[in-house]
Design a protein around this nucleic acid. Structure first.
Length: 276
DNA sequence: AACCAGGCGCATA
DNA sequence: TATGCGCATGGT
């Protein structure tokens, strides 16, 4: 991996197994968009990214080195050996095909609260509408950033609100789930910092104390918000894959990296459906 | 115009 | 423990 400052921003080259576009647009995060000119645009915390392909790598336009190191390097999990992980899970034939076809997908290290809130919104919903609800959530309750983007609102901002106060989001029955999560966190009845330290089963149980958080949302929160690579969200797509390919469970080679395997299989199956 | 969407809570057996 | 249904909203 090579990271260098240029006059346009920070240039990242020589990374193994990293496709920014695939990683951001494969359904794990909902605040990224691909602009018509090919620029990948998104917000993390109070930082805005405009990522362009350049010199076989990526230019983070307008980013300074400090922000790259503190925000983007951890967000894209650039210090994890994805090439090695992909090699390992490719011991299984189906996994090998999915990994080859979509090589470079990484699990993004999202903020815990943003992941929790986003996947509460995701339930019984489709990706375009999930993105729309989250966009309105940020515009309604987040802070305006230079350039016109909005940050994801912290739970403290939402904790005092009634579900009706979220009506501009058009989140439907999920509105009260969001306010329940926010108020339980604000009152310290639940603590994301403590959940981060718990073993997987206990962390699941804690998250599921929130109304509207079941096994699937808890698992997504642990994978995407707490970087638990052994969390394994099973949605309708993955359920189909499991029934068709792995009735006895994931292959042994995926142990410890179930979440990463899941993301490749999920995207593989979804894209396969789209191209029919 | 029904049907579905990265589910969950609740009632029922 | 295991099903089945309703839920807000919007896109096909």
């Amino acid at each position: 991996m090579r990271i260098e400052k240029t006059e346009d921003g920070v240039l990242l080259t020589q990374t193994e197994c990293f496709d920014a576009q695939l990683s951001c647009m494969c359904g794990q995060a909902f605040r990224w968009s691909l602009l018509p000119d090919g620029t990948l645009h998104g917000v993390v915390g109070s930082s805005v990214a405009n990522i362009e392909k350049r010199d076989g790598g990526y230019l983070f336009r307008g980013t300074d080195m400090e922000t790259f190191e503190q925000v983007w390097r951890p967000y894209f999990d650039l210090d994890r050996d994805y090439a090695g992980i992909c090699r390992r899970i490719s011991a299984d034939g189906h996994m090998k095909r999915a990994v080859e076809m979509y090589y470079g997908i990484r699990i993004l290290r999202q903020e815990p609260w943003e992941a929790l809130c986003s996947f509460i919104i995701s339930q019984n919903n489709n990706i375009p509408r999930i993105s729309g609800i989250i966009k309105r959530l940020c515009e309604s309750f987040g802070e305006r950033l230079p350039g016109g983007d909005y940050s994801f609102p912290g739970y403290s901002v939402l904790a005092g609100l009634s579900p009706q106060a979220l009506s501009p989001l058009r989140a439907g029955f999920r509105a009260r789930y969001i306010t329940d999560a926010a108020s339980k966190l604000e009152s310290r009845e639940l603590s994301l910092e403590e959940i981060a330290l718990l073993p997987l089963p206990e962390a699941r149980a804690q998250l599921m104390r929130i109304t509207g958080v079941g096994a699937k949302v808890a698992e997504c929160t642990l994978l995407y918000g707490f970087s638990r690579m052994d969390a394994f969200p099973v949605d309708v797509w993955v359920k189909r894959i499991m029934q068709e390919l792995y009735p006895g469970g994931l292959p042994e080679c995926a142990r410890g990296f179930e979440g990463i395997a899941q993301q490749y299989l999920f995207h593989w199956r979804r894209e396969g459906e789209r191209s029919d």
